[in-house]
Simulated scan of single mutants.
Amino acid sequence: MMPELPLDQVRTLLAVVDEGTFDAAAAALHLTPSAVSQRVKALEQRTGRVLLQRTKPVRPTESGAVLVRFARQLARLDRDARGELGLSGAGEPTRVSVAVNADSLATWFLSALRRVPRQPRICFELRREDEDHTAALLREGLVMAAVTSSPDPVPGCSVRPLGRMRYLPVASPEFAARHLSGPPAEALAAAPVVVFDRRDDLQDDFVRALGGGAGAASALRHHVPASEAFAAAVAAGLGWGMVPQTQADPLLEAGRLVRLAPGRWADVPLYWQQWKLDSPALAAVADAVVAAAGENLRSPGN
Rank of each mutant, 00 (worst) to 15 (best):
G239Y: 08
F196W: 00
V268P: 00
G211W: 11
A226Q: 12
D267T: 09
A146D: 05
L210S: 11
S150R: 13
C157T: 13
A187H: 06
S172Y: 11
A266N: 05
V154Q: 02
D200H: 09
M165S: 07
F230G: 00
R199Q: 13
A190Q: 10
S149T: 08
L238W: 01
A235M: 05
A217P: 00
V268F: 03
Q247E: 02
R208Q: 04
R199E: 08
A232Q: 10
R264V: 12
A261I: 14
Q274K: 12
R199I: 13
R259P: 01
G211R: 03
P151R: 10
A176L: 05
G263K: 01
A254K: 12
A226F: 05
P225R: 12
A171H: 03
Y167L: 12
S158F: 03
V195K: 01
A209V: 09
D197P: 02
F175G: 00
A177K: 08
G215I: 05
E186V: 15
L257H: 03
L162K: 02
L210T: 11
P153T: 13
A171T: 12
V159W: 15
F175V: 13
D200L: 05
M144C: 04
M242W: 15
S181M: 08
P173L: 08
A176M: 08
D201M: 15
E186D: 10
W265C: 05
V195C: 03
L260C: 01
E186A: 12
A266T: 09
P250G: 11
M242F: 11
P183G: 04
P262F: 14
P169N: 08
L210Y: 06
S172Q: 04
A266K: 06
V195R: 00
L220I: 11
A254V: 14
S158H: 07
G263D: 10
P192G: 06
L251C: 10
L251E: 03
L252G: 09
A176G: 09
D197C: 15
G211C: 07
S149V: 14
